[in-house]
Design a protein around this nucleic acid. Structure first.
Lengths: 327, 327
DNA sequence: ATGAAAGCGCTAACAT
DNA sequence: ATGTTAGCGCTTTCAT
């Protein structure tokens, strides 16, 4: 900037005005404007956003913390967040927690230090203390996919409970009576609500059989899911349908259903929580629950931007998921 | 920092020394060190990385440009890039091009302006001019997954040609004679080489039948793939196997094979270029080609870091993919 | 062992 | 319409 000012024999300030588009209102002569822009081009000038950020006190970037970007759901979610942020002229810095508290903490620290203007994050179980760091800084934030009930902030979630009730009722209405559920045993509202929805729906019809609820330990899931499937197959009182409470569980579960020779849907129907973009290779009918990922991501950005622009209200969106059918 | 200096009645410089860990070598008294660290804690001090970056002339972030982060392959790739970068203390800024030249250009500009220390990117067809901007700045860079042959820089790719020859030969050795290929018609080396490998292998055995090569237009893929499958099914001279040149094409292709009632593998075997983490829901044997995504991502970061640390040599890695079998 | 001050590249308020 | 200057928060060299 100094260089181009020198070359034209004018001052740095003027150059800044022109280049940052604040030369309107006849602040700077047309002629000068043109000259400046031209020389900037010639000298192949690129603004230093870091300096700009330091001076302005804002970075035009937001942080996004997800569990694992290679996961189909979060991959999609971050994609939509990014695309939306682009529209606001914002850049996104994504980090993964891998569901680890330590990594969650690191991510938050790094992002805060990088002076991001706001943050969208998927909470990690037990991370309340960490979130308070964000709040202390009065940094705009929105929780997504999950939330800490005791933290007063904006969030975007899906009504996991409601849709789980609905899908279970759908199975009941289809005539199934022996409906199993395979879920992670993780203590996160997004997950426990799915199980609870299933339980409550079955209870309402007096169809609940606790033996049909399979809680899976995350670390040892392959083995545990396998055992669950075998167990369900061997249940003396034939099982009709299985509700898989998340994507990964579904994939592994169906794999062992195939291995055990369980015919889908003739012997058992299946429900998958979340859409998988390769359902079509399975050649079986699949009931699935689709979350409005795009809407969630976009809304999260919209809310965050409002906060960045000064809004103080906390906004909490609970979207409805949808039951769909693939065949 | 000033605040904590004031509070202790010492100077900003000293505080900086301590907090950035440069107080070793008895530069600052033990006692002072402790006091500073303590007050920093109490006052809940967080370093401003932006100011630090400006002063240091480096940001400790690298840019990553991929086609689309919600794509399974790129999702995995960026995940591994991030995890590796973490180890070096680096943050990653990811952007998507959606295969658009304009977005590619924007991404590069934004990243350059943000003063990233290096960049890893998946080139977009026709983007040579844009890449030159990066080179002009002498910014460390490495191309990944694809590369511009006429640009002299580091890259990490997979030998698409070789593995395609191998997988085709495998099919031939299995006894198949009528082997089809379904590929995008996009003009990118990563893709054309797959088709060429298939062609050359078949030619070598005098088994090539041009009618069995189906080139798919990206924009209209669903319909075109459907037609391709029907066409292959109706070929008077029964088709034995199909080589799907990429993930999406495979998913759609298999879907229509199911719809057309083509039995896999009894009537036709299938090959998928790329691994899909939900193969197991398909319950069919699948030959697939697995790229060493993790190694690719990590190596890209390693190379980039060497360059950032001053290495001038350009490093070009061509990894081998592997043929695997799912059943 | 610690202080003082310049400088990183830009913005913005104030002068002219 | 343009110039001058202080300052953003930190690092680092040179003094003390």
């Amino acid at each position: 900037m100094q260089d181009i000012a020198d070359k034209l024999g004018i001052s740095k300030g003027t150059v800044s005005l022109v280049l940052s588009g604040k030369a309107k209102g006849s602040r700077v002569s047309e002629e000068m404007c043109l000259k400046v822009k031209q020389t900037a081009d010639e000298m192949n000038y690129y603004p230093n956003e870091i300096a700009r950020s330091l001076s302005l006190g804002m970075t035009m970037s937001i942080g996004v913390i997800v569990t694992d970007i290679s996961n189909e759901f979060f991959g999609n979610l971050t994609f939509h967040i990014q695309e939306r942020a682009k529209k606001y002229g914002y850049t996104v810095i994504i980090t993964n927690t891998n569901e680890s508290l330590e990594e969650f903490n690191n991510a938050v620290t790094i992002l805060l230090n990088k002076q991001i203007d706001g943050i969208i994050f998927v909470p990690v179980a037990g991370g309340q203390k960490i979130v308070e760091k964000i709040m202390k800084r009065h940094l705009p934030m929105v929780q997504i996919d999950r939330y800490f009930p005791d933290i007063k902030s904006s969030y975007i979630i899906v009504d996991n409970y409601k849709i789980s009730v609905e899908v279970t009722e759908l199975l009941i209405k289809k005539g199934y009576r022996r409906i199993a559920a395979v879920c992670y045993d993780i203590n996160l509202n997004a997950l426990t609500e799915r199980r609870q929805g299933y339980i409550d729906a079955l209870n309402r019809y007096e169809l609940l059989d606790p033996a049909l609820i399979k809680n899976i330990n995350y670390a040892d899931q392959e083995e545990e899911i396998k055992r669950a499937i075998i167990d369900l197959k061997n249940n003396p009182n034939k099982v009709d349908a299985i509700f898989f409470c998340s994507r990964r569980v579904f994939i592994t579960g169906v794999k062992y259903m195939h291995k055990e020779g369980i015919k889908i849907p003739e012997e058992m129907e299946v429900v998958c929580f979340d859409k998988i973009d390769s359902f079509s290779i399975a050649n079986i009918p699949i009931n699935y629950i689709e979350q409005p990922i795009k809407k969630m991501g976009e809304k999260a950005v919209d809310i965050l931007m409002e906060q960045i622009n000064g809004a103080n209200d906390i906004t909490q969106y609970v979207f409805d998921a949808e039951i769909k059918h693939f065949s």
